[in-house]
């Protein structure tokens, strides 16, 4: 069986991480694909996995009665989807739908949480990367909230 190690090692999210940590991650990883239109998860679901996107495009949506899902962010190759697995009670906060055929590597949250507890260095590496991701997404969100192209005045 072909290992997922090279795919993980080349993912931007894990850039610069030690090989031994990659190997720990591989133990929790699995290959997944989602067809266009398929929901990867829905708001309120138990959050057991997160994904490194390799191909395709995903949309994070919030469902509004009478209006359907509104896309709040789109995610592309190089992005990481899902951080609810990190924090109890581990429930999904959004709907996530594949806009087109998407291939990704899924990481088992419970598995990784246990490994992080055992190896604090791995835990730190993961936390550092997720914190940076959150910082970037928070900035983007703040700009979105500004409505900078909106009607002046």
């Amino acid at each position: 069986m072909q290992t997922l190690e090279p795919y993980l090692a080349e993912h931007p999210f894990l850039k610069g991480i030690e090989t031994r940590h990659i190997q720990l991650l591989v133990g929790c990883a699995g290959n997944v694909r989602f067809d266009a239109g398929q929901y990867i998860f829905r708001e309120g679901d138990e959050a057991n996995e997160f994904y490194f996107i390799r191909h395709g495009k995903l949309a994070l949506e919030i469902f509004r009665p009478h209006k359907g899902g509104i896309v709040v962010q789109t995610l592309q190759p190089g992005d990481v989807v899902g951080w609810s697995w990190l924090f109890p009670p581990h429930f999904r906060l959004f709907d996530c739908r594949a806009i087109e055929l998407t291939r990704a590597i899924a990481l088992d949250g419970t598995c990784l949480r246990n490994k992080c507890e055992e190896d604090y260095q791995l835990g730190y590496e993961m936390m550092r990367r997720f914190a940076h991701l959150m910082e970037e997404e928070l900035l983007a969100l703040r700009l979105q909230v500004l409505d900078i192209y909106g009607v002046p005045g």
Partner: peptide, 15 residues
Amino acid sequence: DHGDDTWWGNVGVVP
């Protein structure tokens, strides 16, 4: 910045 039902493209600010 804000998608709708017809939009299949990117959602997010340009930077």
